[in-house]
Amino acid sequence: MDLFNIYYPLFMDITEFDRDNILTEFLTDYLDGKLGRAEHRSFEEYLARNKKEREFVRKAMMGKKALSRMAAQFELPVGEKDTSSLTATDNH
């Protein structure tokens, strides 16, 4: 399966999210705030029962928030936005 071909950091636990595409879809929608009320509750119940997955979700959520803060730093007025990618330093 495709998901197993991904390089994983050695010190990170493999969770059910790595084995189950449907669960990954749920997680993605959960982090994007796109789950319906019932789905949201059901997913949180699942997390309550599964510690490793709950910890993974906490980290993913915190990581997403950290990246959002970074994205806000890059928000420049139109016309001044650097068009090079984050990894490039445009010295022109």
Binding site: T28, F56, A60, M62, G63, A66
Partner: peptide, 11 residues
């Protein structure tokens, strides 16, 4: 999957 794992790894 990579996005979720990347975020978790970053954290």
């Amino acid at each position: 999957s990579r996005i979720n794992r990347g975020r978790a790894h970053l954290q």
